[in-house]
């Protein structure tokens, strides 16, 4: 349990943490939070393993990371890209590119095509997951501001009613 579930998340967290040095993130709080996003995304990936294919796992993990980064960008007043770019890193199909190339060099065409399609679908799943989540979040924040406006109007009406 520890070795299969928590250790990969720890490695994902640490690799996202040091990647902040490559992307020039300097605020320590933001480094920690965005690295936590990387660990969280991989946790979602592993948790969804029993009932989803590899592509769906990446999709779910990407949605998780994107929602997390939208929330954090509202809290810390930082562009959501900062959290998103770092949180998605553990899912990026580096292994897919490598194995596709290796089967290509070996001349194993069947496995080459299989890995190639898997790599492209994983990349697509990440891209679609991220955009779906940000679209959901835009809708949510739109409705929230609408509700807020309604409430404000109601308060004003209430005040007028009581001659304040």
């Amino acid at each position: 349990m520890f070795k299969d579930l928590f250790l990969p998340c720890l490695w994902a967290f640490l690799s996202s943490l040091v990647f902040c040095g490559i992307f020039n993130v300097k605020d320590k709080k933001i480094i920690l939070i965005s690295a936590f996003g990387g660990g969280l995304g991989w946790f979602a990936y592993l948790i969804s393993a029993p009932f989803a294919s590899v592509v769906m796992q990446n999709f779910i993990a990407a949605i998780t990371v994107a929602l997390f980064s939208e929330f954090m960008s509202r809290i810390f007043k930082t562009p959501s890209t900062v959290f998103l770019v770092i949180g998605v890193l553990p899912m990026v199909p580096g292994g897919g590119i490598y194995y596709t190339m290796e089967y290509g060099v070996q001349g194993n065409t069947q496995m080459f095509i299989e890995k190639f399609i898997e790599t492209i679908s994983v990349a697509g799943a990440i891209a679609v997951g991220v955009s779906v989540a940000s679209a959901i979040f835009r809708m949510y924040s739109y409705f929230q501001t609408q509700q807020f406006k309604n409430r404000e109007n109601m308060v004003i009406r209430y005040d007028r009613h009581n001659n304040k």
């Binding site: 690799s15 990647f19 998605v88 990026v92 580096g94 991220v130």
Partner: peptide, 13 residues
């Protein structure tokens, strides 16, 4: 992994 274009993959869609 430090070369793979993860940022661009995320931003395409």
């Amino acid at each position: 992994m430090s070369l793979v274009p993860g940022v661009a993959i995320t931003n395409i869609m």
